[in-house]
Amino acid sequence: MTPSQNGVRPMAAITVRNLSKTFSRRGKALDDVSLVVQPGEMVGMIGASGSGKSTLIRHISGLLVADRGTGGQIEVLGTPVQQGGSLNAGARFTRARVGVVFQQFNLVGRLSLLTNVLLGALGRIPSWRGSLGWFTRAEKLAAMQALHQVGMADFATQRASTLSGGQQQRAAIARALVQQAEIVLADEPIASLDPKSARRVMEILAHINREFRITVVVSLHQVDYAFAYCPRTVALRDGRIVYDGPSTALTPKFLTDLYGAQSEELILPGAYGQGRDEAAAEPAPIGRPATATAIAG
């Protein structure tokens, strides 16, 4: 049973308290991380590779568990996901309310786009029906609607593997929509995409955040995207949160102070200026260039 929507907003969308994670090979990936995300926020998460962004996101969605005996705790939409290094029994049902968008899209290549998107409903429908792949007409229509939202309805019958990275990533977002996710966690969603597809995906994320009030946490490799699309940015370094505040404060100088030599990885030569220009050209405050027409087109 999914906890019912009773109209009363839970206090926070995501609450992370004192989370630490140590991998046997790589050492400490997260070091006493605490973070609160309010419903309806769009939060960017930046940091060099290995700074713990993906690890944090995978903990929130319950795909990883924290170190035992450290008292680390995660609550999502008022429901505990994990505490003290063990997953809560109902984690699967919380997972159903949280959409995850992955760097490598994680679609099933041999299934059609429509089926892939329909699979988003698995956490909500009776499991016998889900296991047999019996989806109702209403569910199929909802999936088509979601594909339309991300501009991929024309490709519904194509195998996911035949599509480009950007197209697959848009379908992955459609899967989160079919899931009726209240939170979307995007783990480097644009790291494997060309700049044009990357902007498109970021626009769609901003769109679903604005239109459907879906809380979005998106980890990013390049700071310009955080600057352009996310009012709030959380910066990680070596598994610790080193900055949490408005993205407008993230000037190149500030980043150099935060990251030292690592900042080169975050501010790709040229990319930063380009992002800046685009953000400046858009009328939206703190650069949120997404428009409804851009989404539909």
Binding site: S61, L63, R92, F93, T94, R95, A96, R97, V98, G99, V100, F102, Q104, F105, N106, L107, V108, G109, L119, G120, A121, L122, G123, R124, S127, G130, S131, A172, R175, Q179
Partner: peptide, 17 residues
């Protein structure tokens, strides 16, 4: 490839699914 499997897991599917 474990990634699609993880994608399915992340939507709240059970082990069978």
């Amino acid at each position: 490839d474990p990634r699609p499997v993880e994608g399915i897991k992340a939507v709240g599917a059970n082990w069978n699914q």
